[in-house]
Design a binder for these strands. Structure first.
Lengths: 242, 242
DNA sequence: CGAGTGATTGACTGGTGTCAAACCCTGTGG
DNA sequence: CCACAGGGTTTGACACCAGTCAATCACTCG
């Protein structure tokens, strides 16, 4: 089982400075692991969790459950991400979190995190910053799904996920395992399945990327970024990937 | 000039508990006022601000500047809101903030806020919570602009703004001054101006609300919420409005 | 009085959602 | 061991929403 060093701590260090004492505290967080089956919900809308989960392996996604039944996927999270640091200070979950493919998360009690925060403010600042970057990613998603053409929208999402994975050292080459189905892609990007598939075909034809069988292959990064109008500034990472 | 008591502090108390000592510290924040002309930018994309602004009167909006020239409005903020608490721990602004109509903001130095935070963690938690609620509003905007029909989308935005204003005690009756132009509405909701106008006409015809000349009038709140699928849970307010 | 911006409406067209069918693959149970 | 069900993928046909373009009017400001 991966340790916090290679996930949580590595992730926080992408944007924040941590003293060795801070890292020792983070490393010492008590936690329990939880294995998730594909599509298994980890937190539901309306829950009031008292633990916070860090992704250890696999992918996890946030989503809104819409009144008519379908979902709106809001963001995707990989090893090291802390998708529900958001829940630290919010009582009722306004969204749900589920696994995309098989995943493992580590659950840390809220109390412990807040205690660490009071003892060592820089830890709080780092986690706070993590939640602010999440917010920035949400903002980008608003623009992506509202203002960009369908091909740009899709290209941008793949750019973001690949870039973030790359920055976290999760992929050494130009591929990325991403067990997202086409219906899920549609529910993330606000487009019908038919359109998802046709747009995907268009990107394939442009020879910039390929996505099939849950695996993304980037063939021409620069051109893909141009199509998706991708500028990684909004990810606020200290050391850019690549 | 309005004081922090009726804006910042009242707003934080909508979702967080503050001791009298906390409030005294907040009240004592040094600050300078800045008056903004309609459409005047307060912060630009790429800036690295060392002060944080609280809205004292009027409206302020966040937006992304898109490569082709147009904007994507991300959120709207009224008196008491703290739109760039987001900037406390992020170096480069990934979005801009401008005034919608004439507005007044109070600028507080970052250093002072962080010092207060180290001295009294509950103040930090309250402000952190404020930024988390912002994030929740962003999430809702993703769903709104991605998954809802055009009429629902527009109704939802008006529901949110009216509800938030109401919760802040900014309007005693069923009207709200909201100097947003139709082009701006379009750039917020991801729809063309022509569609904005036609959709607005449809809502008028439903006799649930009217919006003209920068003034919103709510005629049938329940029906408007139904059209917009509006559920205020995501605003995480302790005492609901109405 | 002109320039600029916003509001409003009409006409046209293309993108995209909806519907439908077929195919592939996997897991399950008779 | 095979039949079947279910989900994902792919493709086609079709209709309609909504974006684009254009024209007009109202209003404000210099």
């Amino acid at each position: 089982m991966a340790s916090f060093d290679k996930t949580l701590i590595a992730k926080l260090k992408e944007h924040s400075r941590l003293s060795s004492e801070d890292m020792a505290i983070l490393r010492g967080f008590s936690h329990t692991f939880r294995e998730l089956a594909p599509n298994e919900d980890f937190i539901r809308q309306g829950d009031d969790p008292h633990v916070s989960a860090v992704v250890m392996s696999g992918w996890v996604a946030r989503y809104h459950l819409l009144p008519n039944g379908p979902r709106q996927y809001l963001s995707f999270h990989m090893a090291g991400d802390w998708p529900d640091a958001q829940t630290l200070f919010l009582d009722r979950m306004d969204h749900a979190v589920c696994a995309i493919g098989p995943a493992v998360v580590a659950c840390i009690p809220h109390k412990e995190i807040i205690k660490a925060f009071e003892h060592r403010p820089p830890i709080g600042f780092a986690i706070w910053r993590e939640t602010l970057i999440d917010a920035s990613i949400f903002r980008e998603a608003i623009s992506n799904n509202s203002a960009r053409t369908k091909p740009a929208r899709m290209a941008h999402l793949f750019c973001e996920l690949f870039y973030r994975a790359r920055a976290s050292g999760l992929t050494p080459d130009n591929t990325l395992d991403l067990p997202i189905s086409l219906p899920q892609l549609g529910e993330a990007l606000g487009m019908a399945i038919a359109t998802v598939n046709r747009t995907l075909g268009g990107l394939r034809a442009s020879r910039t990327m390929d996505f099939r069988g849950g695996r993304l292959t980037v063939q021409n990064w620069d051109k893909l970024c141009a199509i998706g109008q991708f500028d990684p500034g909004y990810l606020h990472l200290k050391r850019p990937a690549r």
